[in-house]
């Protein structure tokens, strides 16, 4: 009898541990909501839809989130524009073209890139990339949306490579053999058979890459110049949602409007990444069925 009780309690213990993840996710939504609610459910909420972000002012504070959202979107869009071709081509190379030694050397290096802390990448952006951009394009400052986008592209690349690589490897080799038996060249096989079959996995990889880029904080905080303006030019300085939270939360008065608005920004970020993640999982799951 005691053995049975022991087994039962052990099972309950492990089940409890597994519940942690659910509890943490619930608490994240709860506490972000709790801190944002007093602002979100007041008439002040209309302020969020303004076009100016001037959170500290003697006359009138402005909490328009549009500049932050467009800032995040501009940097993310550019970063993905750079990262997708390089990421997908590298994945094709690693899984279909490279020989064994090349694979064994290149893959750990790319994994290493994923491990470099974002603050170090940001530091590199300030000291190395910024002067290059400044001189190449004749700008006043190299700290702008383009700088952030290039570095973020670099950070999204390992994510895109790893997941695309998995997808490409899971294409049945019988498909490839059939294509070659029909007289297809290696390139035709890759382009017409392998990539189309792996496409859903590649799309999921790109979505997870976008999620990584839009949530990245320290690098953009350090290199994008942090001017809250609405612009579509890569050479302008922008301020992203993540950078705004990181830069301003340290100096706000607890419980003030500004404090609560920063939590609102956090909720929007959370919802965007949550949505991207769910769509990516749907795409990946349909694939594995």
């Amino acid at each position: 009898m005691s053995v049975m009780w022991k087994e039962k309690s052990i099972k309950i213990f492990f089940t409890g541990a597994a519940t942690t993840s659910i509890v943490v996710v619930g608490l994240i939504f709860l506490f972000l909501g709790k801190e944002a609610a007093p602002f979100l459910f007041s008439e002040n909420i209309v302020k969020l839809f303004g076009t100016e972000w001037v959170p500290v002012s003697f006359e009138k504070e402005q909490f328009g989130m549009l500049p932050l959202i467009t800032g995040s979107f501009l940097v993310t869009f550019l970063a993905i524009l750079f990262a997708v071709p390089f990421g997908v081509l590298s994945a094709v190379y690693l899984s279909e073209i490279a020989n064994k030694t090349e694979q064994e050397m290149l893959k750990p290096l790319i994994e290493l890139l994923a491990g470099i802390p974002s603050v170090v990448i940001g530091f590199f952006g300030i000291i190395a990339l910024s002067p290059i951009l400044k001189n190449t394009f004749g700008l006043e400052s190299g700290l702008n949306a383009l700088n952030g986008a290039i570095l973020l592209a670099l950070m999204a690349t390992p994510t895109i490579i790893t997941i695309s690589d998995d997808a490409i490897r899971s294409v049945p080799s019988s498909y490839k053999q059939a294509s070659i038996a029909l007289g297809g060249s290696k390139l035709q096989t890759i382009w017409r058979v392998v990539v189309p079959d792996a496409l859903s996995g590649i799309i999921a990889a790109v979505m997870l890459g976008i999620g990584r880029v839009i949530g990245e904080t320290m690098t953009v905080l350090m290199v994008t110049g942090n001017a809250a303006i609405i612009t579509a030019s890569p050479f302008d300085s922008v301020r992203t949602m993540t950078a705004t939270i990181a830069a301003e939360m340290g100096e706000v008065a607890f419980g003030s409007d500004h404090y609560r608005v920063l939590f609102c920004v956090g909720i929007i970020l959370l919802l965007i990444t949550f949505g991207l993640n769910m769509i990516a999982q749907k795409v990946l799951r349909r694939r594995s069925v």
């Binding site: 597994a18 519940t19 993840s21 659910i22 943490v24 996710v25 608490l27 994240i28 506490f31 972000l32 709790k34 801190e35 997870l208 999620g211 839009i214 949530g215 990245e216 904080t217 993540t242 939270i245 990181a246 939360m249 607890f254 920063l262 939590f263 956090g266 970020l269 959370l270 990444t273 949550f274 991207l276 993640n277 769910m278 999982q281």
Partner: peptide, 27 residues
């Protein structure tokens, strides 16, 4: 649901964890 929670958690931006930690642990 556990698996869904793990996937969600893996995608939460690090700065949002910072806000969460401020809200729950610090305050």
């Amino acid at each position: 649901i556990v698996r869904l929670a793990i996937i969600t958690l893996a995608g939460v931006p690090s700065i949002v964890f910072g806000l969460f930690g401020l809200g729950i642990f610090v305050i």
